[in-house]
Nucleic acid binder design. Structure first.
Length: 536
RNA sequence: GCUCCCGUAGUCUAAUGGAUAGAAUACCUCCCUCCGAAGGAGGUGAUGCAGGUUCGAUUCCUGCCGGGAGCACCA
């Protein structure tokens, strides 16, 4: 790539000038008028060399000499050096963009990465928060894959505990069918109300204990049937969202006992007893086993790590995607896990990626089911808005979730928040569909060689691989969203001004260009997990 | 109270310490006899406040104001 050549030329020139240690970047300028690449090397070196930045820039400009693929080097502004690619180099980029490996990189080559996401409670209806985690996690997994990693997708559903007991209570009390999802939801709501109001509290706690101990065949059976129904539904919904299947599923009913045992064995070491509970004294104290000796969420994470590292002992990076309110929790729990498993965690990254809250605009919610919007109903409403196209609806939802940095709150107005116009999934999908329609038409046209001026499109395409690398490095899919939106806008603008097919003839270069745009939009959407429709 | 996160056009949002803070939406003009108008061209409009570091600050530091989250037996 030309960028690497530029970097090396600058590095060499700096060295010759006695400023070899200076840190500099070669990046895309904010404005295309400033060229295809720009560097701050002169600005950075000026201080060390005790010279005027513009003079240093002029010297550097001289020293870098000719670089293959660079047509023009200019000094601008306070001391920036701008590089303009030659028409040949841009043509080469278009050729590159049409190859299979376009947009892939080797940032995580040879790394094994575990991405845990979605992780719902199996007796509660899947809500928007679960969807957000799934959407972000899937995109993170794809970013790793496109950067060379061996990715394992993991799901960690909650299949035991008070919530499950509430559902089982409701199923039994109301005589509902655990094989029907809506009845499962009704059972949970009823159980939750009974628990909150106090009338069913004792009965539900009894069920909870019996489920843990597996001492009541009827209750255990209701639980098992409910879990099976819920899991089946989950997997079906995730297919509709475009999530690749999970490589592994670990359940809380497994992690609990394992974590309990591990914590118990390390009292006096990593853990300590305090007020009858077993705690970890980290940045602040957290309870791992409650005073009845039962594992808390913390201990279950310990058990989960044992399960994960047992199934994938050679992992390099372990990602957990959950709500951002758990950020502090994971800081301490990961700390405890490192102390408990020094050998298994040495040299490995344990990373928590926080998902944003979806803030619901008030007032509109009372007419809906309870006070949550289910993933199901959201998708249905969006599909209606998208004229019956679920792939467009999924695109709109995913785009909205992924377009801003992770952890930032999303304001969600069910009536209008998920726009299908402007900065949106459908906008990008539409540009792609247009490009594809054009390419279909062009198959009937005669291809001719014709001189064409390089357009803004080529100059945008250049940066796609760098954008993917940055997104993968920062674990921030929104960089890709921003880029893909920009490319779609540039293509729509091009489309309004230019004609690809004139009198049954197409220029070979223009055809390659449109193909490259199509390919790049497709790759970009794919890495985000957004559907790329043929027509709409 | 302690800790962490966040304040950018009316709204939503981008900017890896860099050039004239970039989009979208809403609002106001235009553009479908022409490869798909879920589109295109143009216009109005923004860094909470006060200091500091730097050649250069939306970005880093300090204080204040405003919002959110977490802080012992829930997950």
């Amino acid at each position: 790539m030309v960028r690497n050549d530029i970097e090396q030329a600058i590095q060499g020139a700096l060295k010759a000038m006695g400023a070899g240690e200076v840190a500099f970047v070669v990046e895309r300028p904010t404005d295309m008028a400033h060229g295809d690449y720009a560097t701050n090397a002169a600005l950075a070196a000026a201080k060390i060399l005790k010279k005027n930045p513009r003079d240093v820039a002029a010297e550097l400009q001289e020293a870098v000499g000719n670089i293959q693929g660079v047509e023009k080097v200019e000094v601008a502004g306070a001391g920036f050096i701008n590089f303009y690619l030659s028409a040949d180099a841009l043509t080469e980029v278009v050729q590159e963009a049409n190859k299979e490996g376009w947009g892939t990189n080797d940032l995580y080559i040879g790394k094994k990465v575990l991405v845990e996401y979605t992780s719902p409670n199996l007796f509660k209806p899947l809500h928007i928060g679960n969807l957000i985690g799934n959407i972000l996690g899937e995109s993170i997994a794809r970013l790793f894959e496109t950067s060379g990693a061996d990715v394992k997708r993991l799901n960690y559903p909650s299949d035991i505990g008070l919530t499950i007991a509430k559902g089982v209570w409701g199923l039994q009390k109301l005589g509902l069918n655990p094989e029907i999802l809506s009845e499962l939801a009704t059972a949970y709501v009823a159980g939750n109300e009974a628990y909150e109001s106090g009338v069913g509290k004792e009965a539900i706690e009894e069920i909870n204990r019996a489920l843990y101990a597996d001492t009541n065949a009827e209750w255990s059976s209701l639980r098992a049937q409910g879990i099976a129904t819920s899991l089946k539904h989950l997997h079906e919904l995730l297919v509709r969202l475009g999530t690749k299947g999970f490589d592994g599923e670990f359940f809380e009913s497994q992690s609990g006992p394992i974590g309990q045992k591990l914590v118990k064995e390390n009292v006096g070491g990593v853990f300590a007893e305090s007020e009858g509970a077993i705690v970890y004294h980290g940045e602040h104290t957290r309870v791992f086993l409650n005073s009845q000796g039962l594992p808390t969420y913390e201990a279950k994470e310990v058990g989960l790590f044992e399960l994960k590292s047992g199934a994938y002992p050679t992992f390099d990076i372990s990602i957990t995607v959950t709500g951002k309110e758990q950020t502090d929790f994971f800081r301490i729990v990961f700390d405890a896990i490192r102390k408990l498993f020094p050998g298994k965690t040495n040299g490995k990254d344990l990373i928590h990626i926080p998902t944003s809250f979806l803030k619901l605009t008030t007032g509109k919610m009372s007419s809906r089911l309870g006070n949550v919007i289910t993933g199901e109903s959201l998708l249905a409403d969006l599909t209606d808005a998208a004229r019956g196209r679920e792939d467009v609806a999924v695109g709109a939802l995913k785009f909205t979730v992924l377009k801003s940095g992770s952890g930032k709150d999303i304001l969600f107005d069910p009536e209008k928040s998920l726009s299908l116009e402007g900065d949106s999934g459908p906008y990008v999908q539409y540009a792609l569909v247009r490009a594809r329609a054009l390419l279909r038409k062009a198959t009937e046209a005669e291809v001719v060689q014709k001189e064409t001026e390089p357009s803004e499109l080529e100059r945008l395409l250049v940066h796609f691989p760098d954008v993917v690398v940055r997104a993968a490095r920062d674990l921030e899919p929104h960089h890709v969203v921003t880029y893909v939106t920009e490319l779609a806008a540039a293509f729509n603008s091009w489309y309004a001004q230019e004609r690809l097919i004139v009198d049954g003839k197409v220029s070979a270069h223009a055809l390659a260009l449109v193909t490259a745009v199509e390919h790049t939009l497709h790759k970009g959407l794919t890495v985000l997990g957004i559907p790329a429709p043929e027509e709409m």
